[in-house]
Design a protein around this nucleic acid. Structure first.
Lengths: 339, 339
DNA sequence: ATGAAAGCGCTAACAG
DNA sequence: CTGTTAGCGCTTTCAT
């Protein structure tokens, strides 16, 4: 498999090594390495040259320990949620632009959110961005007493916690509006069944329906956040009287709905329109092309980073609530002419 | 939004605080906190009590900097790959059991693998587990000169790099074997088109077909690792003479194939059987139920952690290659009776 | 522009 | 069993 390696007995090069080789003090070498001002041009060049030759890499532990500002942003996210991944990816970009480093901490079956955040705090992050936090308000408040905490995506808040999210109400309204404009009236909502943000979306559905004079057509089915949930809920639906359209809690749920509809031998969008929520990669797949409400991960990520930065600078954050945008694809179309 | 918080001006409690409050030396408090031996029962209790009261949490930066062994395991993974997430989740479990902490470093559009690994090294990880590494062999070898490196999933290796993976050849063979036993002969392979591990799977397909005397039926289509790729490849396929079965490079590709087949008005598995690879959550979805080759994330993760641990203990790692298992679900069935 | 000295919070020898 | 003494590798005053 692998030949016996001569595990380098060579200690990692330290700043002291570089300083010695360049004939300067450690302090000066430090200045050069972190690009601070206060070093002569020639010295700077020489030190950098030596550092490169020696393959010097600053030890982040030591650097973090010593410096007052770690410029570290902690992020908690759920591994099994594709959309979280999209947000995390955008956070990397936004953080880099703002001069922060990112520390990831995953939430999973074997790892409760509490442990995830605590490890971030122990690592010395200056602020924590929590994607769809599931902790209780008093726990969140506890974290927020230690560092600025930003809750992303979910409306969950607590004392001292900033919330960056898109206006779910507006998103659902946009979906309903779109369907109504296509002539649909009998629009069913399959809810998130207790999932984070589910209540707000359901409420928005009700309000929108009422505003369009469709109060009598309001119908909410118990769904959930996953494909199975949508499949189950829609399975019942198509067994009865078929509606014009379905607004699902999220994309994964909508995918389940699509499947149920298909199995019933119906066509989308000819017989039934379906809208999702998240504009996730799933929805964009060429064979899916799901009409969905976009939460715009890059913008949310940028807003979250900006929010944390503002708090750290003792400023008031702005732009916390974003207007989601409906992305119309192929799963919604004109209402069928019913009898 | 958020009421003006009184951002705790209270410095985080340090070990010195605990020691002082408990009336012992820092060293002794340290012994107690890390559960080392060499402290009296009464003292131990008192220190722990005080620590709890003060809400003390060890600063991982300081601890890491000072201690010879960080017991840190670094992991690089790709955010947009669901299967990577499954493996990472299992790594957390395995690492904890082995007494290691995990540091995550994501690879993404804005973050090349080189940066991901380097940040791990800077953080002081004792070993790096790289999931489907994409770095060139000489780069991998470079990392391996600094810490033990384990390449997970992909057969990519390099001087000094251990590879933990499942035997892809055996996996593909199992899929072909299964299909042959169902009476299929005209079995097409849609390949990974240059994706990591693609060549090995394709080679195994060819070998297996030959062994079953189906050399004449060998047919490899240019596919890829994503849904789109499978859709495109299978689209061409169904436009021509339809085969008995398809063995796709992975689950995502297989999903695309399923869609193309569906669009052509064919039924799975009645008209055509489809097998994937990964046994990912996608394949397990109730509306998919894809027959797939399981790479068994938990076992691979455990093996990778064990491998790293062995290297750190200067032992030879074992159990690097795993036998994958075919999970038969609903997308494969008896061969259709063709004319 | 450069260097000397101090110390971040902790662990690891050693001495008592 | 407990305390003392040194640092880990780096940044940060504060002199020069």
């Amino acid at each position: 498999m692998r030949r016996q390696p001569e595990r380098a007995p060579t200690r990692r090069t330290t700043l002291a090594d570089v300083a010695a080789a360049a004939g300067v003090s450690r302090a000066l070498a430090s200045i050069v390495m972190r690009g601070a001002e206060g070093a002569g041009e020639v010295t700077r060049r020489r030190v950098l040259e030596v550092a490169r030759e020696l393959g010097y890499r600053p030890d982040s532990r030591a650097r973090l320990l010593r410096s007052s500002r770690t410029r570290l942003l902690g992020v908690t996210f759920t591994l099994s949620e594709p959309f979280h991944g999209e947000v995390v990816e955008s956070i990397y970009a936004a953080a880099e632009a703002a001069g922060f480093d990112v520390v990831l901490s995953a939430v999973g079956t074997h790892r409760p959110e509490s442990r995830a955040v605590e490890s971030l705090l122990d690592a010395g992050v200056e602020a924590a961005l929590m994607i769809s936090p599931s902790s209780a308000p008093h726990e969140l408040a506890g974290y927020a007493r230690q560092v600025p905490v930003v809750s992303l995506l979910s409306p969950t808040s607590a004392e001292g916690v900033d919330v960056v999210r898109s206006d779910d109400g507006a998103g659902v309204r946009a979906a309903v509006e779109h369907l109504v404009s296509l002539g649909h009236r009998n629009i069913v909502h399959i809810d998130g069944a207790g999932a984070v943000a589910a209540d707000e979306r359901t409420a928005a559905y009700r309000t929108a329906m009422q505003e369009y004079g469709l109060a009598a057509d309001i119908r909410v089915l118990h769904g959930g956040a996953h494909e199975e949930d949508g499949l189950r809920a829609a399975g019942k639906l198509v067994a009865g009287s078929i509606p014009d359209a379905v607004v699902a809690f999220n994309d994964r749920c909508a995918l389940g709905v699509l499947e149920a509809v298909r199995r019933a031998g119906l066509n989308v969008p000819e017989d039934l329109s379906v809208a999702g929520y998240d504009d996730s990669q799933l929805s964009r797949l060429s064979h899916v092309q799901l009409t969905s409400v976009s939460q715009d991960a890059p913008r949310l990520a940028a807003a979250a980073v900006a929010c944390a930065a503002a708090r750290l600078a003792s400023e008031e954050p702005t732009g916390l609530v974003h207007q989601p945008q409906l992305v119309v694809r192929n799963t919604t179309g004109p209402a069928p002419a019913r009898v």
